[in-house]
Amino acid sequence: MDVPLWFALIVVGYLGCKLARPPLWLVLVLLLGGYLIADSLLAPVVDSVVK
């Protein structure tokens, strides 16, 4: 079964927010921070740490 990555991330994110109930500001800060880091000079550093 092939599941697209975007669909799996949406499902995991929805279930995480539904079950863990983090504050909305924390979700927004993490999404915005990830977006900004992905387009910065820190992207290669984060990529090497994750891999």
Rank of each mutant, 00 (worst) to 15 (best):
I10E: 06
W25I: 03
A43D: 08
V49S: 07
K51E: 13
S40G: 13
K18Q: 05
W25L: 13
Y35E: 03
W6S: 09
W6M: 09
L32E: 10
L41I: 13
L36K: 03
V3H: 04
I10V: 09
L42D: 01
V50C: 07
P23T: 00
V49R: 11
L5Y: 09
G13E: 02
P44S: 01
L36R: 13
V11L: 06
D39W: 12
S40F: 02
L30F: 15
V12Q: 01
Y14I: 06
A8L: 01
D47V: 11
W25Y: 09
R21L: 01
A8N: 03
S40H: 15
A43F: 07
F7H: 04
L32S: 07
K51F: 09
C17H: 06
V50L: 12
I37M: 00
L36Y: 11
L36M: 12
L9C: 11
P22S: 00
L15Q: 04
I37F: 05
P23Q: 08
L32R: 05
A38C: 07
G13I: 00
K51M: 08
L28D: 04
V50S: 01
V45C: 12
V11E: 10
P44W: 00
V12D: 04
D47P: 02
A20W: 15
L36G: 11
D2F: 15
L19I: 15
W6T: 14
P4D: 04
I37H: 01
A38D: 03
G34T: 00
V29S: 07
V46W: 11
G34Q: 00
P44Y: 00
V12N: 03
V29H: 02
L41D: 14
S48G: 07
S40T: 15
S40C: 14
V11A: 15
A38Y: 12
D2L: 13
L36S: 01
L28C: 06
V46R: 07
L30M: 13
